[in-house]
Design a protein around this nucleic acid. Structure first.
Length: 561
RNA sequence: UGCCCGAUAGUAUAACGGUAGUACGACAGUUUUUGGUACUGUUUGUCGUGGUUCGAAUCCAUGUCGGGCAACCA
């Protein structure tokens, strides 16, 4: 019983998978087709990643295919720059689309569809202004009213619509509307707009058109043309579904079906394109790929892996209810991946000098450090030079160490990673009371791998040899906002920006094995976290971005006092 | 207050009328040449009220709360 139960629990499907399995089992479809339909008016963010993983993941799981379709029906907001970034991001996430398509590919077909509806008496040209149309639509509690244009003849509508296309009218002078139901409790059914006039160049069709279809008269039709079986979108489109189905029914075209899920929200960030654009335009961040942003481009630059993002999308699940996912889950997912795969190196972020007083002057030993304890055979090893003077982390020494401090303090012993055990003998301060140097004696028979000292130490610290150290810049990132849900706070969301979301360390000492690090490479700096070589890093000036810190139970302990 | 969605530990997500489970987080411990990793354990939950039923998170009714909808945006 229990084994069987466990088996079925492992198989538990999300509601979209259930729908697909039912449709396949019932024979409604023999294979499925999905699509990812971004509007090229901004960069993709982690919320889109959820949609991408859902659409591509469903097709992958059930042997279907997925189109990448740009929903490019509004030329004034869209740009080729965004098309390119979107393609790059989807590819980087690890998905391959069956076809690269554009709603604008269907402009001619869509026009014919519109003509068909006019001929059926189901669409009409309206000369009203936006304000008049809005007024005539009524309110959720009062039905809308028609106007004289609603009764135009099919011939007149055909003629007017053709002239709209021909450019006989100015922007806003006329629109094409579907004749549905002005009294519908669903506002989207109160004679929705199908086409508007925009004398604007389109990034793909240039000046071929001056009328452009609205979302509701492009999206479902595009789905239908592509024989999309499961058209997955977010819950704010639920009220559109009735219209989606209405157009398909009246047009008598392939019946695609729309299903909705709740968009992703994450703590300490914002997810709307409008707000992200505002952060970019107001220079609060340094562009769409600033590593503090929730965009795919930013996460990539920050050091997140495609695997970690896919794992995250898998773990958050999918439902229709509102949600706010803990940022810590995303962080868990990167650590999970990077722990297994990131090469280990030593870097001292906040250096202080440690002098090993009983170590011979000028002597250098070449020690060996494994590249990754999680990998087979430690992932190989690299040489690490050791000498009398080392950089160690300032926080690894305390003048007055508390009881459970397993690092340096006068009289305390620690292991220098990959090297010797040392005992702290003293330190030096400047006039301001800052510790400038720490002194220690090493135990010569405690060398890593050949330790006959029988000494047990509680702590191990990282270090870099002073004369061999390389210098690098390190950028430490923290959450962009001070509050969990900035969009839900009083006032402007920008009031809640975390002023300390970026800290730049100019003088970080790193071990020489890092000399050849190239942009995009990911490392774990021992005891400090995961770091990614920035895209602008050069051999002359190495720059690292901190992806995420290691879990730090000592920091918690210390905070408790 | 018209219509539409939704409500399960702190956060997500399962349980499809039959023992409320999993993950992240938090807490405690074991191991450890990373205070990392790994492992073990603990904690906290079915929105309220009625009803149907031998049995309800699940079905029904009603209330409450949250979200969406009246762009020539998508």
């Amino acid at each position: 019983m229990s084994a069987e139960k466990i088996k079925t629990e492992e198989k538990s499907l999300n509601f979209l998978e259930e729908i697909v399995e039912n449709d396949l089992a019932s024979g409604k479809y023999t294979s499925i087709m999905t699509r990812f339909p971004p509007e090229p008016n901004g960069y993709l963010h982690i919320g889109h990643a959820k949609s991408i993983c859902l659409n591509f993941g469903l097709a992958l799981k059930y042997g279907g295919r997925t189109n990448l379709r740009f929903d490019d029906t509004n030329p004034v907001k869209e740009d080729i720059e965004y098309v390119d970034s979107i393609k790059e991001d989807v590819k980087w996430l690890g998905f391959e689309w069956a076809n690269e398509l554009y709603a604008s590919d269907y402009f001619e077909t869509l026009y014919e569809y519109a003509v068909k509806l006019i001929k059926k008496g189901l669409a009409y040209v309206d000369d009203s202004s936006p304000e008049e149309i809005a007024a005539q639509k009524g309110t959720p509690t009062e039905p809308g009213k028609g106007n004289e244009y609603r009764n135009r003849s099919v011939e007149e509508n055909l003629d007017l619509f053709a002239r709209m296309r021909a450019g006989d009218f100015k922007d806003g002078e006329k629109v094409l509307r579907a004749k549905v139901d002005l009294a519908s409790p669903n506002m989207h059914m109160r004679d929705p707009l199908m086409y508007r006039i925009k004398h604007a160049d389109h990034h793909r069709t240039g000046n071929a058109w001056c009328i452009y279809p609205m979302y509701d008269f492009a999206h479902g039709q595009s789905d239908s043309i592509e024989h999309i079986t499961h058209s997955i979108c977010t819950v704010e489109f639920i009220p559109h579904r009735e219209l989606y189905d209405w157009f398909i029914e009246k047009l008598e075209i392939f019946p695609s079906h729309q299903y909705e899920f709740a968009r992703l929200n994450m703590t300490y960030t914002v997810m709307s394109k409008r707000k992200l654009l505002e952060l970019v335009n107001d220079k609060i961040v340094d562009g769409w790929s600033d590593p503090r942003m929730p965009t795919i481009a930013a996460l990539r630059r920050r050091g997140y892996t495609p695997e970690s993002i896919r794992l995250f999308c898998d773990k958050i699940g999918v439902q229709k209810r509102e949600n706010l996912i803990d940022l810590s889950l995303l962080e868990f997912c990167v650590r999970e991946d990077l722990n297994k795969n990131a090469t280990r190196r030593m870097a001292v972020l906040d250096p202080i000098k440690l002098i090993i007083t009983n170590y011979p002057d000028g002597h250098v030993e070449e020690l060996s450090g494994e590249n990754n304890p999680e990998a087979e055979n430690g992932g190989g090893s690299r040489p690490i030079p050791f000498s009398k003077e080392l950089w160690i982390e300032r926080e690894d020494f305390m003048e007055d160490p508390p009881k459970k401090f397993f690092r340096l303090g006068v009289g305390l012993t620690v292991r220098l990673k990959y090297a010797y055990i040392v005992k702290c003998t003293g330190f030096k301060k400047d006039e301001d009371g800052n510790v400038t140097e720490v002194y220690a004696e090493y135990i010569s028979e405690s060398r890593s791998g050949a330790d006959s000292s029988k000494i047990n130490v509680k702590g191990t610290i990282h270090w870099v040899s002073v004369q061999h150290a390389l210098t690098a810049e390190v950028r430490l990132y923290d959450r962009l906002f001070k509050v969990e849900d900035p969009s839900n706070e009083e006032g402007d969301f920008k009031e809640y920006i975390n002023p300390d979301s970026l800290q730049v360390l100019q003088k970080v000492y790193i071990e020489p094995a890092l000399a050849a690090a190239f942009p995009g490479e990911r490392y774990q700096f021992l005891r400090k976290g995961y770091f990614c070589v920035d895209e602008n890093s050069t051999k002359e000036k190495l720059v690292f971005n901190r992806t995420v810190g290691l879990k730090d139970t000592w920091a918690k302990e210390a905070k408790k006092g």
